[in-house]
Design a protein around this nucleic acid. Structure first.
Length: 742
DNA sequence: ATTTATATCTTTTTT
DNA sequence: AGATATAAAT
């Protein structure tokens, strides 16, 4: 029975499956059957009588975990459900819930997402009256995040000379103070951010040896997938957990490390050998996924990096078609060419939409492809981007739910206190914050006793709000998550507000909220979930990633996503688009981190997603912040050995011709269906192009006027206009709505 | 307090 | 272009 699944494996794969005792590192080249090895390895353990509950498998996404769990289930049956398998964040959030009291939290702690963190930093900057142009919120958060990922506490940060010198040099000397207040505030709010989930796990295991011991005994086998993308904090957790049994197995590929910007430390993989002297290293180098041409092209690219672990990825697959290079004249043309190509290949090779993927560097690039595919009636789906749970209306309802379970959650409070509008404006909120600060109590203390803190005059709407929340709390104690959430949606007025909004967007938002309620219903009805409380649902939801919440499963659609999201996936036909210098490799990456090698690894990851045919494309011009920008071909294109390439000239020339004609006709503002409200229909936002000196125009408010001057300089599309009634005005054209009278 | 108009900023990837 | 912050008007 067990030989069944060993049969199809090559020698190193088989060895990896059978090596279960002692430290093991599997260096798995792209397409080398890594997932297969991992699933069989776990199945093998279970078949040999290992309790699934003593197996810990850490993956990069929850989706990967679920897929692997299903595959294991096919071999060993329902026992597979017991395996502790998930992302670092979700597994250790689960453990932190259980042990929360040990580190000063309660089990209902909230998890702050990036938006919450940023909003908290914003208010801290305000309180310290620091200039948020100097202390950029993103920079501050990134700095705190990197510190935590390297396990540097507030105290250590403040003591450390190097950090202080760096912050001085960057003219942000108050970083240490901000970090301290930020952490204090999180603790006070009974909240953790993403990095805290790992940081606090380390603290928990460091300060509570009995807890550490419990989990060390529990997890006899520890496995880490995508090991090249783990950070120091994550690595130390696994090392501690595996310290007793020493059965640690890590799987990764240093050539596919693409998350260094998030604290992933490629050194982990390179230093692993030093930490485990008796380490067994197995390399999986045979690629089963791609054609010879694709494997060779990928090798020719990645060989330019100075990696420390050499491996030779090879394949026995057929040579396959050459890699095609398409040159388009504009981003829109690029979209059309790719859509045409997909259409033709699909017909000629009788393929399905789901055999195709379009991969790009940044989410913003998807637009042109969406339009082109829609025009050709090709179905597509976009993975990632703004996820369901990041939408405003969803975040609002979730914030209500969060605050109902955790009244210390001040970011949730700030989000909902005046949503829907209930007469508690900015001024009132500011007073609440000040009052809480003076009395050294939490915001909820002030809100729930508004009259005594702020006086009766102002207290009325606040009191109503507090009463509302208290009633939610009573219900959540008695009812399940669904009934509570449905009640909150109704009683808070959120549903009503959205229902009254009759615009297309308003309707969609209303439906989104209904969809969230459905999801909660599903959660409650699922017999696998024992705890049906609101707080249990919130736990499961706060760590969902954008890739995991898309509802339409495996339908026949072309997939579009960033290269980062494509990690671990494969497609018959892959299009890597936008191969332009400054876009890919990204300008930002090069200037801020000077890391060309990581960008190159990203390119390598993209290439190796393709099974049969790879197409690369770039555009000679592209819209960027509303402006047309000329681009040059990416340096990466020159790194591919030309013998594997075929340049598609005809496509390029045709593209140039069509785009040339197209560019002659002015772009018209898009008509979206027939929108209901059209009070100023003929007042359209003007553009420099259609405004000239001496032209007679009409402004909805200032009335008639004559254009005096149009200013194109410094990217500022301004026009000086003399109005009959109000005199001379300078308008920013992209915002001024004007009607042109010839 | 809330709505509306204008100015400013964005510049990457995501658990 | 689009989102978000700020200022001004209601």
């Amino acid at each position: 029975m067990e030989l069944d699944y060993l049969d199809g494996l090559n020698e190193p794969q088989r060895e990896a499956v059978l090596h279960t005792e002692g430290p093991l590192m599997i260096i798995a080249g792209a397409g080398s059957g890594k997932t297969r090895v991992l699933t069989y390895r776990i199945a093998h353990l279970i078949n040999h009588g290992i309790d699934p509950f003593s197996i810990l498998a850490l993956t990069f996404t929850n989706k990967a975990a679920n897929e692997m769990r299903n595959r294991i289930e096919k071999v060993v049956g329902t026992e597979a459900r017991g395996i502790w398998m998930g992302t670092f964040h979700s597994i250790f959030a689960r453990i932190l819930r259980i042990e929360a009291v040990r580190i000063g939290y309660t089990r209902d702690f909230s998890i702050y997402d990036t938006d919450d963190s940023k909003s908290l930093i914003r208010s801290i900057l305000k309180e310290l009256s620091l200039d948020d142009k100097v202390y950029r919120v993103g920079t501050v958060l990134h700095r705190i995040s990197s510190a935590k990922n390297s396990l540097i506490s507030v105290n250590e940060y403040q003591r450390n000379e190097i950090f202080r010198a760096e912050d001085e040099a960057n003219r942000i000397p108050d970083m240490g103070r901000i970090y301290k207040i930020y952490q204090d505030r999180l603790l006070k709010s009974n909240a953790m951010d993403f990095d805290d989930l790992l940081f606090n796990t380390n603290i928990l295991f460091r300060d509570h040896l009995d807890v550490l011991n419990k989990y060390q005994q529990k997890f006899r086998y520890v496995m880490v997938d995508e090991f090249q993308d783990t950070n120091v904090s994550q690595y130390l957790i696994t090392r501690k957990l595996a310290a007793v049994h020493q059965n640690i197995c890590v799987v990764g590929d240093d050539d596919q490390s693409i998350y260094a910007f998030r604290g992933a430390n490629i050194q982990n993989i390179l230093n692993f050998e030093k930490d485990y002297p008796e380490l067994r290293i197995i390399k999986l180098e045979q690629n089963y996924r791609s054609t010879k041409n694709i494997v060779s092209a990928a090798n020719s690219v990645i060989s330019r990096n100075k990696t420390q672990l050499r491996k030779d990825v090879w394949t026995e697959n057929e040579e396959g078609p050459l890699i095609e290079l398409i040159k388009a004249s504009s981003d829109n043309e690029e979209g059309n060419l790719i859509a045409n190509s997909i259409f033709e290949e699909k017909m000629q090779q009788s393929l399905r939409n789901s055999d195709f993927a379009i991969l790009y560097r940044t989410n913003a690039q998807s637009r042109a492809f969406e339009e082109a595919l829609r025009r050709k009636n090709i179905k597509y789906r976009i993975v990632g981007g703004l996820s369901f749970y990041q939408r405003k209306e969803i975040k609002d309802l979730v914030a209500y739910m969060r605050f109902t379970t955790n009244q210390n959650d001040e970011e949730a409070l700030k989000r909902i206190i005046n949503v829907p509008k209930r007469g508690i404006g900015e001024g009132t909120v500011a007073k609440i914050v000040v009052s809480a600060g003076e009395s050294n109590v939490g915001l909820w203390e002030v809100v729930s006793k508004a009259a005594s803190f702020l006086g009766a005059r102002i207290a009325k709407p606040i009191d109503d709000f507090a009463t509302l929340i208290k009633s939610f709390r009573v219900i959540s104690d008695q009812k399940d998550a669904y009934e509570t959430a449905a009640h909150i949606a109704k009683a808070s007025g959120l549903l009503k507000e959205l229902h009254e909004d009759k615009t297309v967007e308003g309707l969609a938002r209303y439906e989104n909220v209904q969809e969230l309620l459905n999801a909660i219903k599903e959660f409650v009805d699922n017999s696998e979930h024992e705890d049906k409380s609101l707080s249990a649902f919130l736990q499961s939801v706060s760590l969902l990633t954008s890739a995991e919440d898309d509802k339409d499963t495996d339908r026949d659609k072309v997939t579009m996503m960033t290269i980062h999201m494509a990690k671990g996936l494969e497609f018959k036909y892959v299009y890597i688009v936008g191969l332009e210098e400054d876009l890919f490799p990204s300008q930002m990456m090069l200037t801020s981190r000077a890391d060309l090698e990581e960008e190159r690894r990203l390119f390598y990851v993209a290439i190796t997603r393709a099974e049969r045919k790879l197409t690369l494309s770039y555009a000679e011009s592209r819209y960027h912040y509303g402006r047309l920008k000329t681009c040059e071909a990416s340096r990466f294109l020159k790194e591919i050995d030309p013998q594997f390439l075929r340049v598609n000239h005809s496509a390029g020339r045709e593209a140039y011709a069509t785009s040339f004609v197209k560019n002659l006709t002015p772009r018209k503002p898009q008509q979206i269906n027939s929108t209901v409200h059209t009070p100023s229909a003929d007042f359209t936002p003007s553009d420099t192009a259609n405004l000239t000196q001496g032209m007679r125009v009409e402004h909805p408010k200032f009335g008639f006027g004559v254009v005096k001057e149009v200013d194109h300089a410094n990217n500022e599309r301004k026009a000086k206009i003399h109005f009959e009634k109000v005199g001379e005005k300078t308008l920013l054209l992209s915002f001024a709505k004007l009607k042109i009278h010839e």
